[in-house]
Write a protein that binds this DNA or RNA. Structure first.
Lengths: 149, 149
DNA sequence: CGCTGATCATTAGCTTGCTATCGATTTGGA
DNA sequence: TCCAAATCGATAGCAAGCTAATGATCAGCG
């Protein structure tokens, strides 16, 4: 029963490692790729907005943004209307990486699921969605003394 | 297509967070739990052996072991026959945590997959195994210029 | 018997998550 | 108008991965 959790962890780890290797060939680490995906679509978001979209905490985005700034992928600009806000803007370098990285991601997804039939892919998709829904909705964490003993 | 990867990442993250919270109630963090699972079965393994079983690098085990030693969960003992080796032995405290933690893990797995039918669970299981097999076997990483362009 | 190469664990340093805290800015109420 | 509360981003510090480099010990060969 607990076996599924292990498989899920292992699969995710393998995929993440492969993604990181692929992205790194384009000068982008796997975590930065997620930020890029959102900013390619909507440039100039704040760290907080980005964090909400990525379902990650703000400090995570701030730290990643700092590394990306150092790598020349984005710049921070203070919002003129509200001094608390910082807006993240992609550089031409980041825009130039869009096509190759999107392609790399597509290839990886194809490769990983190449041995699955369309039906299996659909089953996997729906099973994962059910798990996610289950873990996000309400989620009374299964504390001890629910049905135990 | 790339959607499945996102779902897999998200599901794994949710599960890991829930597991960490559950384990923490027993004084064990989620990464340490993996070490415990192996040592409960086979005490006295070396960091290298443990790393191989967990499919993790040796430094990861070393660092986790250091934290666990500080937490009083295990002790390091030099192998008398081979001075290069270090053997990790669980303390009574770690043994006492076995039942509650195993139970917590079981409950979590049950909770997470509660909305799946048995058939869906089997499908999920086999799909994940296929992905893992695909990613481990040979794995010519999908570099650019395979079928692109 | 001694030295060289292999085999371990450890350390250093990085990425990516997290929580908790701090500092600055804005806003709303008195 | 001004001060307190709310809202942000940034920082500090931890866990858990990784790779690369260090250091200790062993084994085998000359």
């Amino acid at each position: 029963m607990t076996e599924v959790l292990r498989l899920l962890t292992r699969a995710q780890k393998l995929l993440r490692a492969a993604a990181d290797e692929a992205m790194s060939r384009h000068g982008v680490r796997v975590g930065q790729n997620l930020v890029l995906e959102v900013l390619w679509e909507t440039d100039g978001l704040t760290p907080g907005e980005l964090a909400a979209r990525l379902q990650v905490t703000t400090p995570t985005v701030v730290n990643t943004a700092t590394r990306m700034e150092a790598a020349g992928l984005l710049v921070r600009r203070r919002d003129p209307a509200d001094g608390r806000l910082v807006r993240l803007h992609l550089t031409p370098k980041a825009r130039a990486a869009e096509q190759p990285i999107a392609e790399a991601r597509r290839l990886l997804a194809e490769h990983a699921t190449a041995t699955l039939t369309d039906e299996e892919r659909r089953h996997l998709h729906s099973a994962l969605k059910k798990i996610i829904e289950r873990m996000t909705a309400s989620t009374p964490p299964p504390g001890p003394g629910e049905d135990a003993e």
